[in-house]
Write a protein that binds this DNA or RNA. Structure first.
Length: 426
RNA sequence: GGAGAGGUGCCGGAGCGGUCGAACGGGUCGGUCUCGAAAACCGAAGUACGGGCAACUGUACCGUGGGUUCGAAUCCCACCCUCUCCGCCA
């Protein structure tokens, strides 16, 4: 959510920020509505002030035993109120709703150093870890490996649930579990995050707070009682801050959770249909930081390094990509994607996305902190990052550590979490 | 799911429909006292939006949304949440 005062103060700057995202200017329409809101509100408040004054007078007359005068005044007020209502009615409500709807559907302002560009082709690779591995044979894709092992079953998943679901069995199911457990342990034990177990079904206020609503309702699965399945644990974790005022001394809050995520993938029809790259349901370890404006930039770098650590320790080849203006998500001021090399697919694929939303989400959810010094409360900054997507990590491990015979070596770090299994084979 | 009770400021807790943004107590902050601290005493302090250079000032907010009324924290309706008991259940 944007600060209407900032738009009033610098409409041109606001439109320039939108232009970076390839959007049309909006300040003109917003300020026009805002003006209507403000003038109608002013009338309303003046009228209310007068009404309160008159009504108090009635009370005084009655208290003084002057009942006839009081009755006369009540009749006068009633007449006056009718005339007033013809004047102002609820003229502020409609433009206010329009103004706020527009504001709530406009994306966050980008950081100045976000690269220009319309789409992912303009993203900037910041650095790469590891070389693209050589194979003495033609590496297979994860679903070829998984199906040959008899441990990845899309037919059964389709029977049970439909397209875009996966059934994992035996050591592959266990490796998925091991990945999630290990990542969670890493972030809690070494990176200072607090583990949280959270609701997977959330209300509309929470979805609004992180920015899924009102604009992206189609991407969500709805329940019959007006809740939504979470598309990411960013939603419940970030909403810890909703309607809260934290003492600055309590910050930063660093939260992590391993949860299933549910996405309708509306608009992705036909993309990544083979395998488990793009599913309606997948497991993900999420990191969320709730912090102060001064600390959020450093926190973003730190969080991204926490995610990178996961990939490095697994022995994967990865790179950090700075998303360009056109590819940066709705709520983010800046985003680093981590892409992992998939030898079977022969392509870099996103496995983590770390974003600083600055005060964008905090404004939506009215999440504030009380500064150590100075007066007044300020909006928090919120950040989120995958640490990392478990399903995609499984894919990357399979494709990276596959052997010519179709077996898969288990990364060292996962072995303790898999009862010592070193290789998954037929 | 059934029955009941309740949701008020940082916390506890009052509040005949009229000067209530809200008594009182605790906590917090500032001061007096003290070598210092405690105690005691004095004082300050809600959030948001708008107007004003400022002092200051208007409006809204007593779970949420409607309604009744000249006037609502107080009355009515719906919803949400919490607690107690019963039932059911991982």
């Amino acid at each position: 959510m944007h600060d209407i005062r900032a738009i009033r103060a610098d409409p041109a700057g606001f439109d320039a920020a939108l232009a970076r995202r390839g959007m049309e200017p909006a300040s003109g329409q917003i300020l026009e509505l805002d003006q209507a809101v403000r003038s109608a509100t002013k009338e309303f408040e003046e009228s209310r002030a007068e009404l309160k004054l008159k009504s108090r007078e009635v009370g005084k007359l009655k208290a003084g035993g002057k009942h006839d005068e009081a009755e006369q005044l009540i009749r006068d007020i009633a007449d006056w109120e009718v005339r007033q209502s013809q004047w102002f009615g609820n003229r502020a409500n409609e433009p206010e709703a329009q103004r706020d709807l527009i504001l709530s559907t406009l994306p966050n302002t980008l950081d100045p150093d976000v690269p220009d560009g319309r789409d992912e082709s303009a993203n900037v690779v910041l650095h790469q870890h590891g070389d693209i591995p050589d194979f003495a044979f033609t590496p297979k894709q994860h679903f070829e490996l998984g199906e040959a092992l008899g441990l990845m079953d899309f037919a059964t998943a389709a029977k049970i649930a439909g397209a875009r679901f996966t059934v994992l069995k035996g050591p592959l199911a266990r490796m998925e579990r091991a990945l999630g457990q290990w990542m969670l342990a890493l972030h809690t034990d070494e990176h200072g995050y607090t583990e949280a177990s959270v609701p997977l079904l959330v209300n509309d206020a929470s979805m609004y707070g992180t920015g899924q609503l009102p604009k992206f309702a189609d991407d969500l699965f709805r329940t019959t009682d007006d809740r939504s399945l979470i598309p990411t644990a960013e939603v419940p974790l970030t909403n810890f801050a909703r309607e809260e005022i934290f003492p600055e001394a309590d910050l930063p809050l660093r939260l992590t959770a391993l949860t299933p995520c549910f996405r309708s993938e509306a608009g992705s029809a036909g993309r990544d249909t083979r395998g488990m790259l793009r599913q309606h349901q997948f497991a993900k370890v999420e990191m969320v930081s709730i912090t102060t404006p001064d600390a959020s930039a450093a926190e973003h770098e730190r969080m991204t390094r926490c995610a990178e650590r996961v990939l490095t320790d697994l022995g994967l080849t990865w790179r950090r990509v700075f998303l360009c203006a056109g590819d940066t998500g709705f709520g983010a001021a800046r985003t680093y994607d981590l892409e992992v090399w998939l030898p079977g697919q022969g392509a870099w694929r996103e496995i983590s996305s770390c974003s600083n939303t600055r005060d964008f989400q905090a404004r939506r959810m009215n999440g504030r902190f009380k500064p150590r010094e100075g007066k007044g409360n300020q909006f928090l900054h919120t950040l989120n990052g995958s640490g990392v997507a478990v399903g995609r990590a499984l894919i990357a491990v399979m494709e990276t550590f596959q052997q010519e015979d179709g077996s898969v070596l288990v990364p060292e770090v996962l072995r303790p979490w898999m009862g010592g299994i070193e290789r998954i084979a037929r």
